[in-house]
Amino acid sequence: MSASAATSGASIVATEQDLHEIGEIVARHAQLEGPLLPMLHALQDMFGHVPQAAIPVIADALNLTRAEVHGVMSFYHDFRKAKAGRHTVKICRAEACQARGANTLAATALAKLGVEWHGTTTDGAITVEPVYCLGLCANGPNAMVDGRVVAGLDETRLDALLAEART
């Protein structure tokens, strides 16, 4: 991730460099059939969120209105308008994990971190998101830490993961 200070938080100010990178990403995907989701994913991979400054660039390249691009982006849970914490922990809330104690585990973790779902800890270290199934359903409760899946969690193991993320 090479996000500059100017694009952190909900800031809509973009640097020359950011605009250059946005332009490159948009141009690289413009010839695909159905290019918008791959573009948004690539932007989020680069910046940690989809910068506001990218919306008009995409709209222009794909002959869409800015409202249409915003409409697509806001439809999907994955795309973020602002940067998340330094680490994102997604805890599975789906039925199979619930059958193995996920509700209590998640409630305890949220209470310890002092956040609600989608919240970020005050030190900016961890954002907690719900996720509905990671496909490890006989081994729950499960979670995803920055894109890495972890299974068979209990309070001790989740605490260790959260502590690791905060260092």
């Binding site: 989701l37 791959p38 999907y76 849970h77 509905y132």
Partner: peptide, 8 residues
């Protein structure tokens, strides 16, 4: 391969 974006 195309990647979804978290919408069930």
């Amino acid at each position: 391969i195309r990647v979804g974006a978290g919408a069930y």
